[in-house]
Amino acid sequence: MTEQAGRLAERAQTVGGNRMELLLFHLRGRQSYGINVFKVKEILPCPKLTNLPQHNPIVRGVANIRGMTISVVDLGMAIGLPPIKDLSESVVIVTEYNRVTQGFLVTKVDKIVNLNWKEVHPPPAATGKDTYLTAVTELNGVMIEIIDVEKVISQVHPVNERISKGVIDEKLKLISSKYNVLVVDDSGVARNQVIRCLEEVGVQTIGLSNGKEALDYLNAIEESGKSASEEILMVISDIEMPEMDGYTLTTEIRSNPAFNNLNIMLHTSLSGIFNEAMIKKVGANDFLPKYDADELARKVVQRINVLQGTATV
């Protein structure tokens, strides 16, 4: 079994168990930060960096790593801290997010910890809407901040949020307006990307930041005497979220007969190969890697067409 296959097998054991592995690292001082281990491809001493003209200031340069040229972002600068001075003593965490291989420059990598998402919470409201955190947790009395990496990457690799001509038409938009889509993502940047795309499709949207909020929302619909399966066209959910992840949300939905017909699509920056296997285990209807506006729009249009009787499942 390859190392990657072994990691997939280990991760598969925790699906639906609301658990995650977090790689801890430092940027400046003693503050600990975290990133999901499953997004990490490699950790290595900072290689030789080549500067690029007119590049984003948070990109310290590009490096050739195993035959691939990748940009290296000073993660501290990206969240408003001073730049790392001594590159020779720093470390690069090579990751894959949103179909992009990206290096993150940090001062020190600490260790890997296994956590329950119930122990991970949204950042305090006092941090404001412009915060670069998606969550916080505490380990042995030490506060760990989990960075909104998708927000950082959007500075370096902006995505096209507009739907291409021909993906939707005006007739469909008239039909779409009667449908509601529940969007669940702890990253405000990622959540708003999806919502803006869906607004172009013409559907109504409800945006929530984690699986617990989403499950409470669906249960409230049922308690009001309505049917969530009839009120919600589909649930589009991220996987990594504080308090309740997307796997556990899907498992909880599928355990409730009232939600039998609720359509769920997991929309995540995690490994596509991994998720294609895992959606079957938790009972999601579909999986889409982030982020392609046209692909996302087509998935929603397909769901509308199914309900309208103009397409097959």
Rank of each mutant, 00 (worst) to 15 (best):
L139S: 03
E161I: 13
A190Y: 01
I168H: 07
N180T: 14
V183A: 06
I144H: 13
I144P: 03
N192V: 03
I163Q: 09
I144Y: 09
S154K: 03
R162S: 11
Q155A: 08
S154G: 08
I168K: 06
V149M: 15
V142M: 08
M143I: 10
H157L: 00
V142L: 02
K151V: 00
K151G: 05
S187P: 06
V149I: 15
S164V: 06
S154N: 11
V167G: 07
D185G: 02
L174Q: 12
K165E: 06
V156K: 05
V159S: 04
D185Y: 02
V156H: 08
Y179R: 02
D148L: 07
S154F: 01
V167C: 09
R191Q: 04
D169H: 12
N192W: 00
I146D: 12
N192E: 11
D186Y: 04
D148V: 06
G188S: 13
E138N: 12
E161V: 15
S187L: 04
V181G: 02
V181K: 07
H157I: 02
E145L: 08
I163T: 07
E138G: 12
Q155T: 00
H157W: 05
D148I: 01
H157E: 02
L182N: 08
S154P: 01
A190H: 00
L172T: 03
L172V: 06
R191D: 00
A190I: 00
E170Y: 08
V159R: 06
V167E: 03
A190F: 00
